[in-house]
Amino acid sequence: MARDYSDVDAQIERAREVMARISADYAGTGKRVRRKARSAGRKLVRILVANALILLAAMVAGFFVPLGLFGGLAVMLLMAAVTIGIMLAPAERVVTEEKLRAVDVRALPAQTERWLERQRPALPPPARTLVDQIGVRLETLSPQLANVPNDGEAAYELRRLIGEQLPAFVGDYQKVPPPLRAQVRNGRTPDAQLVDGLKLIDQEIAMMTERLAQGNLDSLQTRGRYLEMKYRDGDQG
């Protein structure tokens, strides 16, 4: 009977892991879609503004020098070239490990998330799920840093974890030749070591977020007790 319960517990735990993985994948996919939509929107605005300025400049020039057929054609070609150039330009500047070490702590979660997103395709599927989950954690952490001083202890711990250790850890994995990543060494494969390390980092980010939000949580609890005492208990009296 104990064995049956053990099997059931194992199946429940596996089901929980699958659900957590699906949830992280869904959240990560949603974030990537939103990021791409914002990027496309910004490019569209740049294209419209650039083409409007070109047309305005052409109209002003036309008051002094008739553009003629070739002038109009040149304006159209210039507009087409600018449009193509903006469409093909990188949406955002590439985030490097060096930049992560120097960025302001309030911008660090977003920058680390962008850096992780670029590494994601080169990682094994279980690690990609964890990268998505860490991305959600970082998105939750970011608002908590509004009042965190850049030279404080919390900023130092955060910078060390997600600005130094996380990129260095993923970078060390990527330096391992792909054929060796699934080979067992000292009892574990590099793929498994990557997943285990990302799990620890994910847990630590969650604990950091909770510590930073502790004051807000305490304030909410105090406010809730006050409301209960003033209104609910008062009504009963």
Rank of each mutant, 00 (worst) to 15 (best):
A146I: 13
I201S: 05
D25W: 06
V45E: 11
L145H: 09
I12C: 08
L194Y: 01
R42A: 15
R21A: 15
A213F: 04
P149M: 00
G85A: 14
E204W: 00
L130C: 08
V195H: 02
V95N: 01
D196E: 14
I12V: 15
A37K: 10
E117Q: 11
G68E: 03
E17V: 05
L217Y: 11
T29Y: 09
V60W: 06
R16S: 08
R225C: 00
P178C: 03
L166H: 03
Q183V: 15
F169Q: 05
R21N: 12
L100D: 00
G41Q: 09
A80W: 10
Q183N: 07
A10K: 13
I134H: 02
F70E: 11
G234E: 10
F64S: 07
I22F: 10
V33T: 08
D172G: 04
Q11C: 01
Q144M: 12
R34H: 06
E98F: 04
V170T: 03
P143T: 04
T29G: 13
A154H: 08
G152H: 07
V95F: 05
N150K: 03
P124Y: 12
D151E: 14
A213T: 05
S6V: 10
K230S: 13
D132S: 13
L130I: 09
R137H: 14
V82Q: 01
I134C: 07
D7I: 14
Q111R: 04
R160K: 11
A192K: 12
A127H: 03
A74V: 07
F64Q: 01
Q165W: 03
P143W: 06
K43T: 02
L145G: 09
M79C: 13
A27V: 07
E117L: 09
M79V: 15
S219Q: 14
A91T: 11
M76G: 05
L73W: 13
G171T: 07
I86K: 04
S6L: 14
A37G: 03
E17A: 14
E92M: 08
T222Y: 08
L138G: 01
P109I: 05
D4H: 08
